[in-house]
Nucleic acid binder design. Structure first.
Length: 709
DNA sequence: CGGCAATACG
DNA sequence: CGTA
DNA sequence: GCCG
């Protein structure tokens, strides 16, 4: 997978502010390459500004004002954007204004760092100037005839970067020594020239072809591409046939495996298809790009038009101040851009299944930023102003929005459609939804074992599954497809609390997770249980509790029972192990249990019976037992959402040099415990959590505003 | 170009 | 390796 | 993929 680092030399970018809220933001000087660069120019100024009329196609190239000598000369170092070479005329007063690129070799635009609009505008302008334009597409695509191109325009500042971007487009080059002189670049000598977009802006401004000298970034010579074809798919030999042969048998096994779990058939209908992890080569779409999209845009109001309507919309603080961490802004559960977020979530899941941790990060960041945005997004350039969103996100939005400007429900993105169609994605996703199976294992099931359905897993793999995976499979449908309504979550929490209190009085609990963040339905129940007397939170009380719940039938299976703060164990009285300190005796600790739960009370509204049998859906319940000394951090840590927690840790590290986890806050160097989150006298658990948040120097956002997606 | 949250436990 |  |  190609790394795409888009942030090199963001000269003039205004996105480099510190996110510390108390730091006053010094407005940085907005350079010419800021996110709104494309706004500076009307859509088709070239055509409009051809005061001398459109150049005739029949005219000899040489009759057109086009300072070859200037363009050819490469005597300026690639990065010397500073000095101006005026050996070739900007246009003289009185000279005919002329912006024809007829004599240019085939031109292409490097889409990197350009918004879709900017790219589109450039394409239009260049065509209008009669350039021999090879169109490029924002999302890493390449056109079939990209190899024709010899002259590239791009928001590129370094030769290295230029070579990299060219390679992404499928054009392999090696740098020609700066200063290498050439007589006539436009004879096809295999040389490639990369020039800054500013050159073209200058041309537009002066209404005439300008010297490219100060704008040359890179001159390269074409080389051989990478060896070999696209090392692609191994054929999965006989798995498919095996599947068919044994279909009947699998059915029986599935029923057996599902046992009392309801036995519904949960096999996927697999549509054989291409893998969704395609190489980044698209052709036809790109070919059409330059032609089609302008038409598409004009069907309704253009982005440019729509934006103007938003000009006086007050942007939320995190946008104005470019606050990049989720802990610094409110994220409501529902937002006006949920439909687009769902698209991003699909991509994120596909990245998860590809083990692309960084992709997951990136999409999570973008999603949370959009989740915090209070207005319906109408333009991809607005998206560019959100922290964590840049060219890629904006290009996705552009395609999505314009695929059906008038009907949100019809909007789609081709790449996402393909993901969702692909067998690989669908099957891996199904495996991934087995509790106890992560992305790595889902891939292994699909790629190595060759399994294509849950039936396959059960028939061919049952004995290799861990115990919890077997349980996860047994309750697959209930866990994944029967969400828990809020009242039932509350009921489960209350029941656990009651049983705890019956064992030993004085326990208090709070339901955390998605429920606390306001979700109408939950996938599981998370709760933090605490006692003011620290003694009551140790000595295996959680085991006692779970045992009692088992005896009474509420807990049907125990997936995990042990100590754990973040997930596993953290000693609360001491720094985490990563600090190199040994565990001490009698340390306080967070304990955690993960169980399957089933309603047992026939009088309960959540109880379901069939043929005298309890068929209430099984529920996943996590119980965290916290000592009073860290219950504030436990509640904060278990409330989420995921991106909030991530950014919380980043903030705590950056601002204080501390380490946050649900078992406490720690000084990084000494490993000393920072006293935060102790359950104070006369304080409830919510207040305790608030003290932690504020103690960390953060604004308190209620849990309903921590829905980071 | 390096970094991206966190980690004990089964 | 998977889990929250 | 985005940021510093």
């Amino acid at each position: 997978m190609q790394r795409y680092d888009s942030a090199i030399d963001m000269t003039g970018s205004d996105r480099d502010e510190d996110e510390l809220p108390e730091h006053t933001k010094e407005p940085t000087v907005a350079g010419p390459i800021g996110p709104h660069m494309h706004h500076k120019r009307p859509l088709s100024p070239v055509a409009a500004s051809s005061s001398s009329g459109p150049p005739s196609r029949s005219a000899s190239p040489h009759s057109v004002h086009s300072p070859h000598s200037a363009i050819h000369s490469t005597d300026s170092p690639p990065n010397s954007a500073g000095h101006h070479d005026n050996t070739t005329s900007p246009h003289d007063l009185g000279a005919p204004l002329d912006l024809s690129l007829l004599s240019l070799p085939p031109v292409a635009v490097i889409p990197t760092r350009l918004s879709p609009e900017a790219l589109h505008d450039l394409h239009e302008q260049l065509s209008a100037a009669n350039a021999d334009l090879v169109t490029t597409f924002p999302s890493d695509g390449q056109t079939a005839d990209i190899h024709r191109a010899r002259f590239f325009l791009g928001q590129i500042n370094t030769p290295k970067r230029a070579a990299f971007e060219l390679r992404k487009l499928g054009v392999h080059t090696e740098e020609v020594e700066a200063g290498t002189s050439r007589e006539a670049v436009w004879q096809d000598d295999g040389l490639i020239t990369v020039v800054k977009v500013e050159w073209w802006e200058k041309c537009l401004e002066k209404d005439g072809v300008q010297s490219i000298n100060p704008y040359i970034v890179y001159v390269g010579r074409l080389t051989e591409g990478p060896p070999g074809g696209d090392g692609k798919k191994r054929a999965l030999p006989s798995a498919e046939e095996l599947v068919k042969e044994r279909e009947m048998k699998r059915r029986r096994i599935l029923e057996r495996a599902q046992g009392d779990a309801g036995g519904s058939d949960s096999r996927v209908k697999v549509i054989p298809g291409k893998p969704w992890t395609k190489p980044n080569t698209t052709t036809s779409v790109d070919e059409e790009f330059g032609v089609k999209r302008p038409k598409l845009m004009r069907k309704t109001t253009s982005e440019y038009e729509r934006e103007k309507g938003l000009a006086n919309q007050v942007q939320p603080r995190y946008v104005r101040e470019q606050l990049k961490l989720a802990v610094h802004r409110p994220h409501p559960l529902h937002c006006p851009n949920d439909a687009f977020i769902n698209v991003l979530k699909t991509i994120k899941l596909s990245r998860t299944l590809q083990l692309d941790d960084i992709g997951i990060r990136a999409y999570s960041t973008a999603i949370s930023a959009i989740q915090a945005y209070p207005y319906e997004l109408l333009s991809s350039s607005t998206l560019l102003t959100l922290p964590g969103c840049d060219g890629k996100t904006s290009a996705l939005f552009y395609e999505w929005y314009n695929s059906s400007p008038d009907d949100v429900s019809q909007r789609k993105i081709q790449a996402v459609e393909e993901i969702e169609q692909s067998e690989e994605y669908r099957v891996m996703k199904e495996f991934y939804q087995i509790w106890g199976v992560g992305a790595k294992t889902a891939r292994e099931f699909y790629l190595d074992k060759g399994w294509r359905s849950l039936d396959d897993v059960i028939e061919f793999g049952w004995n290799q599954l861990s115990r919890v995976q077997q349980i996860g499979l047994k309750f697959y449908d209930e866990i994944n497809f029967i969400p828990i309504p809020r009242p039932e979550v509350a009921r489960i929490g209350a029941l656990v609390g009651k049983v705890a209190d019956e064992l030993r009085p004085g326990y208090e609990y709070i339901i955390t997770g998605g429920y606390r963040r306001g979700k109408e339905q939950s996938g599981d129940v998370d709760m933090v249980l605490c006692h003011r007397d620290e003694e009551q939170t140790r000595g295996g009380f959680l085991t006692m509790l779970v045992t009692r719940l088992e005896e009474e039938g509420w807990v049907t299976h125990t997936l995990y029972l042990g100590r754990g703060g973040g997930f596993g164990t953290q000693r609360v009285g001491e720094p985490p192990r990563s600090h190199g300190l040994a565990h001490g005796e009698g340390a306080e600790e967070l304990e955690k249990a993960m169980v399957m739960w089933q309603e047992q009370d026939p009088a309960s509204p959540f109880y379901k019976e069939e043929g005298g049998r309890n068929v209430s859906p099984h529920r996943r319940v996590d119980i965290i037992l916290s000592p009073p000394s860290c219950v504030g951090t436990a509640v904060l840590g278990w409330t989420g959402g995921t991106t909030y927690e991530r950014d919380l840790r980043r903030w705590v590290e950056k601002r204080w040099g501390w380490k946050f986890d649900s078992g406490g806050v720690w000084e990084r160097g000494s490993g000393r415990r920072v006293e935060l989150g102790e359950w104070a006298e006369g304080e409830d658990l919510v207040q305790c959590e608030r003290r932690v948040i504020e103690g960390l120097g953060l604004e308190y956002f209620k849990p309903e505003l921590r829905n980071t997606g």
